Simulated assay, not measured.
Amino acid sequence: MTTYQWRKSSYSADAGNCVNVAAADGVIAMRESDEPEAILTTTPAALRAFIRGTKAGRLDHLAATRRQ
């Protein structure tokens, strides 16, 4: 089992709801501070692609309100 060195954003201050990030063995791990046992892992390349796509607005349609 991998032991992660978790980090949180300095913008989080003492807020309880934070996303923690760790890197180990070529994997990026992420978790929510209020549910630390649920860990999502990805590769650095996949995370970069996700961030670029999000910044470029390619995922905006996922957050759009559906009209009935």
Rank of each mutant, 00 (worst) to 15 (best):
L47P: 02
S33P: 02
L47S: 06
Y11D: 05
A45W: 00
R48L: 12
I39R: 02
E35R: 13
Q68T: 10
R31F: 01
G53A: 04
H61F: 14
T43L: 08
T2S: 11
T41F: 03
G16M: 07
S10H: 05
V21H: 01
R31C: 04
L62S: 04
A56K: 10
G16I: 05
N20H: 13
M1T: 11
N20T: 01
A15K: 11
A56G: 09
G53H: 05
S33N: 15
Q68W: 02
P44G: 09
R7S: 15
P44D: 10
K55H: 10
Y11C: 00
R66T: 08
I28W: 00
A15W: 00
K8L: 04
R52N: 11
A22T: 03
T43C: 08
T42C: 13
M1S: 13
A56T: 07
R66H: 08
R48I: 06
L59Y: 15
W6K: 09
T2N: 11
R67S: 13
T54A: 12
T42E: 05
A49N: 12
A15S: 15
L59Q: 08
R7A: 12
A22H: 02
T2A: 11
M1L: 12
S9L: 11
G26K: 09
K55V: 07
T43D: 07
I51K: 06
C18E: 06
A23F: 10
S9N: 09
A29N: 03
A22K: 03
T3K: 13
G16S: 13
V21A: 08
H61M: 04
A15F: 02
F50A: 13
A46K: 11
M1G: 14
I39G: 03
Q5W: 01
C18H: 05
T3W: 01
T41Y: 04
Q68A: 12
D60A: 14
A46S: 15
D25Y: 03
T41M: 07
I39K: 02
Y11V: 02
